[in-house]
Write a protein that binds this DNA or RNA. Sequence first.
DNA 1: CAGTCTTCTCAGCGGGGTCTCAGGCCAGGT
DNA 2: ACCTGGCCTGAGACCCCGCTGAGAAGACTG
Lengths: 224, 224
Amino acid sequence: MRVLVVEDERRMAAALQRGLSAEGFAVDLAHDGEDGLHLARQGDYDVVVLDIMLPRLSGYNVCKQLRAEENWVPILMLSAKDGEYDMADGLDLGADDYLTKPFSYVVLVARLRALLRRDSGRRPAVLAAGDLSLDPARRKVLRGERAVELTPREFALLEYLLRRRDEVVSKAEILEHVWDTFDTDPNVVEVYVGYLRRKIDGPFGRNALQTVRGAGYRLAGDGG
Amino acid sequence: MRVLVVEDERRMAAALQRGLSAEGFAVDLAHDGEDGLHLARQGDYDVVVLDIMLPRLSGYNVCKQLRAEENWVPILMLSAKDGEYDMADGLDLGADDYLTKPFSYVVLVARLRALLRRDSGRRPAVLAAGDLSLDPARRKVLRGERAVELTPREFALLEYLLRRRDEVVSKAEILEHVWDTFDTDPNVVEVYVGYLRRKIDGPFGRNALQTVRGAGYRLAGDGG
DNA sequence: CAGTCTTCTCAGCGGGGTCTCAGGCCAGGT
DNA sequence: ACCTGGCCTGAGACCCCGCTGAGAAGACTG
């Protein structure tokens, strides 16, 4: 598996190269945005790790540029927590996952593997489960023919659940991926699951979004 | 889940022990590098929390030594922010994750769980015995075509038995792995074995889950 | 500045899950 | 046949988990 790491901080870049090589990845490095963009364009990578703060051309723009060129290589974004951009921006850009510094090395590897596992082919235009569909680019959700209005947080939650549909996802995982924190009261997840249910399952019948007591939630692949 | 904490600062060590125990981990302590290395060598731990600044033998060397001995127990390193070593060094050594003091307790627990989860990523996608199958990710259990509803405890018990199918497993082992305790009345295992039997073996015939009097239980590899 | 929308916290509740207990049952040994 | 110790099981109490309505705080808009 070939990985491109775009990171200007030399020590960090070197550490990542050593670490990922030890995990069996073939690692190339780029130290600024333009080099990164160039290399990524060669198209030989299975996944790109992209810092946002870069000299010459920001990760933000590298990502935007690649997507504009219809290059759907999986991208994992890195950024400082207090930075100019946040997770919502990162995902807006067409990044596939997002990590804030300082990040855990283990988590990085886990996310990389998850990205590689996900789809080695083209990036699906829309996520769907039964007659429920979500378009990440347009930020639109449909239940059958009917459009569903979601707040940003609700949207992010549904997107994450759809990406892992049929799997049971724990509240901790949801907090980590949708809220980008560990130490938040899990109750907030319960509340938002409630909101989502009212909007996509309606007052009766459907239950696309199932509770698995003691384990988490599961979005049914057939849409309920 | 068994955790070894190697930390010389008594107050910190005690705090970690209390906190992690409350989270359901079984915690052992070592107060210097040599003790830590000794205990880690016994090999009974699922993860090791290793301070870098230690008397007698530094965490740096403990880690190096273990890896040299082909011991790949997951290691989470702790160090002072301004310390001699940094993240790049830590990862070079073969540590699996790295945390700088002062760290958030919640973050520590989250990282530990991530480390423990990582192993589960390498586990087979679905466990089976005859026509009985269990999917950890989807949290689904099937007996032939029929889905079986299990509570969390029942699920954990069946998962453990399936992982060791055809082996005789003692109640003590079950208590340690499924309940995370030693000193609980073993009767609770008998009760849950009963629950499981009703759900996977049905009222007659099948007996996938066999009693081995005086020794424990065995899950038959052919599913009964 | 008032009004709206979103996010998140809090407290109460209902119900399902966990565990304890006691009595009955079964196997193996004397 | 009888005893003993291990195992099974029904009943019930407790408690934790997840759901929900209310509302405070903050962002954004007109």
